[in-house]
């Protein structure tokens, strides 16, 4: 039960920070997303994001900084395993499921559905 509460709280907090950045700074949503993914990557590189994942599970992995973390974790694991080439292969290997799913499902949805005016 506690893992659900932590996922809700931490995930919600990360999104609330995003909202604050969008409403109080001139940053557009696209800028906020770029900042978040880069921030996730840097925190992960410093070893600070894994503890958050351990604490909050999906609450830290589902928001976009989690994507940056997965990329960096993939790169570091792969560097440990196969050396310098891991710098180029590790990131996409670790995130392949999400990215491929986005492209495949995105294409299928575009085939099936049309945009609806509001």
């Amino acid at each position: 039960m506690i893992d659900y509460i932590m996922a809700f709280l931490v995930g919600g907090l990360i999104c609330a920070v995003g909202q604050i950045l969008m409403d109080f700074t001139p940053l557009s949503p696209a800028h906020v997303l770029v900042v978040f993914v880069t921030l996730g990557a840097i925190l992960s590189g410093l070893g600070l994001y894994q503890p958050l994942i351990d604490l909050a599970g999906a609450g830290a992995s589902v928001p976009l900084p989690g994507f940056g973390h997965t990329l960096v974790k993939g790169v570091i694991d792969e560097v440990n395993k196969s050396g310098a080439l891991g710098i180029l292969t590790g990131g996409l290997k670790a995130t392949a499921a999400g990215i491929t799913a986005a492209i495949v499902f995105g294409y299928i949805m575009a085939l099936i559905f049309n945009p609806k005016p509001k």
């Binding site: 609330a16 995003g18 976009l64």
Partner: peptide, 12 residues
């Protein structure tokens, strides 16, 4: 707002 933009569902 950011509540549905920041999670990976927003990426999709």
């Amino acid at each position: 707002g950011a509540g549905s933009i920041v999670p990976i569902t927003g990426f999709a």
